[in-house]
Design a protein around this nucleic acid. Sequence first.
DNA 1: GGAGTCAGTGAACAACTGTAACCACAGGCG
DNA 2: CGCCTGTGGTTACAGTTGTTCACTGACTCC
Lengths: 223, 223
Amino acid sequence: MPSLSNFGERLLTAGMSHPLGVRQAQKQKTRQAFLDAALVLLEEQSLSSLGLREVTRAVGVAPTAFYRHFPSIADLGVELVKEALDSLHPLIGSTASAEGDRAERCARAVDLIAGHVEAYPAHVRFIAREWHGGVQPVREAIRRQLARFAEEVKVALAQHPESEGWSDEDLLMLAGLYVDQMLMTASQFLVALESSPEERDRVVRVTTQRLLLIDIGRDHWND
Amino acid sequence: MPSLSNFGERLLTAGMSHPLGVRQAQKQKTRQAFLDAALVLLEEQSLSSLGLREVTRAVGVAPTAFYRHFPSIADLGVELVKEALDSLHPLIGSTASAEGDRAERCARAVDLIAGHVEAYPAHVRFIAREWHGGVQPVREAIRRQLARFAEEVKVALAQHPESEGWSDEDLLMLAGLYVDQMLMTASQFLVALESSPEERDRVVRVTTQRLLLIDIGRDHWND
DNA sequence: GGAGTCAGTGAACAACTGTAACCACAGGCG
DNA sequence: CGCCTGTGGTTACAGTTGTTCACTGACTCC
């Protein structure tokens, strides 16, 4: 009986990753502690200057323990990319499939971005910073994932009736423009966050107008 | 007679900064050596991880000599921002005042950007990297300068006949969009530089289309 | 021509870095 | 139950870092 239940527990059952052995559970816990601590430290520096010891110190663990979880800081960074962009992923779905009036759609998109930035500022800061940052594998990971996002947006756009007569390449161009614009907007909210609420309002206004202009361009693309 | 010529030399005569004392000239020379060396080192790391000793070693000078020129690495960074964005400045002038057909104008703008990136890749990489980077004073310096660029573009746009009926705020919004798009384009050329020439062509196509779409949106803004 | 300024040197500092070897001990498995 | 695996701890090492201080010697100025 106990051997049977143990057997079931240590399987990484699809969809239910929770019931792991106590051992594995503890490991993932400290692993997550590394990721969280790193994210905090990265709020005021970039990954290429983040020290291994700095992270372990923040977690409250021996320096060498780091190697049990990541081969290097760069790999920790790649993992953070996954985490951060996974949290951003649902956002692109709901913005791409928004309904209603043009102005409403744009305003709603900006609102969603603002909400996300205020919910996960550290994640957003990390992505914005390392997007062009000094650690090549991390840069590549971000670029790859953003390319996937653009691909997704393209598919979503293709289903809209406004996209009739659009070539596949042009749709991807527009999708990329949206994705990039989303990140730029998020970054602007980031700086507005540590400024006045009036600045936040200004950013809302400006970025909404930007989206509007792009949307208008989209409507008259095939003239 | 010699005292008279010396007197003239050591004045920082307006417009002619060349005839300084031998002393000052040598100082500015090593100062420039610091900036150049730093720029090279920054091609594969970000400023927040750039060490003082690393720079002095590259210049071939004692570590302490650094302090004769900059109080800290961050100040070196701010100076690099000036240098890099000054080299980028003429570009925004010539793109904003471009003439001709819409497609021609956009293609020419992309061409100018591509040319600049290939002429000063290190400058562009530095700006793109530190734009959201980990050193606050540098970030601020870049943002301030980019805001000035946007202001300039706004003024240039206002003179165009297409800008009739545009509010000042909307013009600034458009100008900011152009400036940001310019940097994003430059960054994309940067990654294309260390890739295939076909990738470069793809970037040319996509970014030109992006500008075109924005330009179309501009035309139909007041409908 | 003599005094003074100052860019650059060299040695020394305490603090820090990544990483290696070895050890302890709790959880998992037969 | 007892053996083994493996997370995490400990100690140590060799380099590196930023910054200080007193110094030299060439250039500048009167």
